[in-house]
Simulated scan of single mutants.
Amino acid sequence: MKGYRRALLDGMLFLLMIMLFVPVVHAAGSPPLRFGFYTRSCPGAESIVRRTVRRAVSHNPGIGAGLIRLHFHDCFVRGCDGSVLLKSLPGGPKAERDHPANNPGLRGFNVISKAKRRIERTCPNTVSCADILAFAARDSSQILGRINYPIPAGRRDGNVSSFNEVTQNLPSPRLSADQLIQNFARKGLSADEMVTLSGAHSIGRARCSSFSDRLYNFNGTQAQDPTLDRNYAASLRATCPVNGGSDPTVAMDPATPNRLDNRYYAELRAGRGLLTTDQTLAESPATRGYVDVNARSYGVAWAGKFGRAMVKMGSIDVLTGNQGEIRRSCSLVN
């Protein structure tokens, strides 16, 4: 009973803190994002996105993880402006989605396009692709982790997508904790928020090539990363042979691979973080405390932190007001 009352209190505090959250917009003089932005102009927008996402995730739970990752990759390059959704045009410069960090790994483009087409039939030229992507990431969090948080909206779509800016902005899967802290700080996110957002790695999959250096020829004296649990490393080697011709994928979280939860942090403490950027969070003095707190948190308490961090991330360098445009197709500028 005591645990139930604590969980209930945590849930009430989560809702209160979300309601008190003040959306951040970094462009001076532009109107802020706000809750209920489409209440009058397109009242069914969020419901359409939710139904589209739910249908897609019911057929393939991995799509939910893909949509959360898609939102992250969008926001870290040029801000949350839907630029990651744009396709490269023949004869033109390459777009973000063709960068090796995004292709072939990113998923969920078709889900966003389907939601956009359905919304356009009801509310043409009204709802941005950037907002649809933010809603879809939220809905994926709710479906896979029962993490539901209100999303302020009013984002506009950018009309530029730069291949080269991906390398400059997205964190590599081999960064140290200090490098991750610096990378996220440039986007206005704290070390605590960085560790919290990393919890999205409790779902989804990663290609062997993104972590195989931890299994073979780790350094001049050790073949395997010593921070890896031996049994976990053995299971990874079985899937990722040293001279494998293909590049298979492995679940990011070996414990609850299809549930967005804080079990991820307990796995880190046990040496079962898949990527270097995962395990370094538990090894570095700069982030270890945040990992410990998140691992011990009630599920609702961590869900609250995750929701608030997602809202803040979704406000990075947004376009609002008369900036950008409302694309008619999410993959092409008007």
Score class of each variant (00 low, 15 high):
Pro90Phe: 13
Lys87Trp: 08
Leu86Glu: 09
Asn103Leu: 09
Ser113Pro: 00
Asp81Pro: 06
Cys123Ser: 08
Leu85Trp: 12
Ser83Gly: 14
Pro61Leu: 06
Gly66Phe: 05
Ile112Gln: 08
Val84Tyr: 06
His73Pro: 00
Gly64Pro: 05
Pro90Leu: 10
Ile112His: 12
Lys87Arg: 15
Phe72Asp: 04
Ile143Met: 11
Arg138Ile: 05
Asp74Met: 02
Ala65Pro: 03
Phe72Cys: 03
Gly82Val: 02
Ala134Leu: 02
Gly62His: 06
Arg69Leu: 14
His59Arg: 15
Asn110Ala: 14
Lys114Gly: 04
Lys114Asp: 13
Leu133Thr: 01
Val84Ser: 06
Gly64Asn: 03
Ser113Met: 06
Phe72Glu: 08
Gly108Cys: 04
Asn125Lys: 07
Asn102Lys: 13
Ala137His: 12
Asp81Cys: 08
Gly92Arg: 12
Lys116Asp: 09
Ala95Trp: 04
Pro93Gly: 10
Ile143Asn: 04
Ile68Glu: 15
Phe135Trp: 07
Val111Phe: 01
Lys114Ser: 14
Gln142Glu: 13
Arg117Gly: 08
His73Thr: 11
Asn125Gly: 07
Asn60His: 01
Leu85Gly: 05
Leu106Phe: 03
Gly64Thr: 07
Glu96Cys: 02
Asn60Arg: 07
Pro124Trp: 00
His99Pro: 13
Ile112Asp: 04
Cys80Asp: 07
Phe72Ala: 06
Gln142Asp: 07
Gly108Lys: 09
Lys94Phe: 13
Pro100Ser: 05
Lys87Gln: 13
Pro93His: 12
Ser113Asn: 05
Leu67Asn: 10
Arg78Asn: 13
Pro61Gln: 10
Ser113Ile: 04
Glu120Ser: 12
